[in-house]
Amino acid sequence: MAYTQPHPRLSVLSTSSLPPSADYASPTNSSTRFSLASAPSLSNTLVGSTKATSARPSIYDRNLNKTRFTEVSGSAFAFLFSEMVQYTQKRVSGIGDLERRLNTLGYRVGVRVLEMMMFRQESSSKNPKRETRLLPVLMLIHSQVWKAVFGKAADAIEKSVENADEYMIIDNDPPIERHISVPRDMSQLSCSSFTAGIVEAVLDGLGFPARVTAHNTPTTQYPTRSTILIKLDKIVLEREELMK
């Protein structure tokens, strides 16, 4: 076995699900199998076929809009997210730290969500545009980003009465919290920090630096209701003033 496999953590594909034996030894075979772009090997193992992988284009070569309305299993995501929270919880001290780490994980997702959304929307449009004003950007997050990530728009968007730089996006039933019951001794924890990270990344990417946090605001009708609090950077408000 001269061919060294990539470390399992570095590979997106789980090597354990690949067909065993001889294939591993052949470098010609494995070079396509292990490249990150060749998702076909993944789908092949799913249907149990070992045929040549060349027929199907890689996930990066496929049409972006083809997968626009495809959905992933809610249960599969719930288990994945549950593991993410457990993994993170083992490595932190305190709730603030846990929320910050979840925020960071969400940030990595948000960067990609924004890129993908823009490619999908603007690449086919005759006059591509980029939002430069605050309110359209907030509306974009409230409807488009939420639809791209959760398949539905958020329930409300509010402006803080006390602070001019604070906005709130409210979701009555956030899909990522649907199955989560936070124990009483950690009641301040909001797992929607992950969503807050996504929002922060999208705002950053559009040039609206902000600090975004998540808070539980349960009502009797919606016990998992969450508020995403956006605290905009000073420069954003100054720029808005100039653009008036």
Partner: peptide, 21 residues
């Protein structure tokens, strides 16, 4: 399956303390 097994704060085989359940 929904409210206990998908809850990151539940430890398998331990008493179930989940408001959702």
């Amino acid at each position: 399956s929904d409210a206990v097994m998908k809850n990151p704060f539940h430890t398998p085989e331990m008493p179930i303390r989940s408001e959702g359940f």
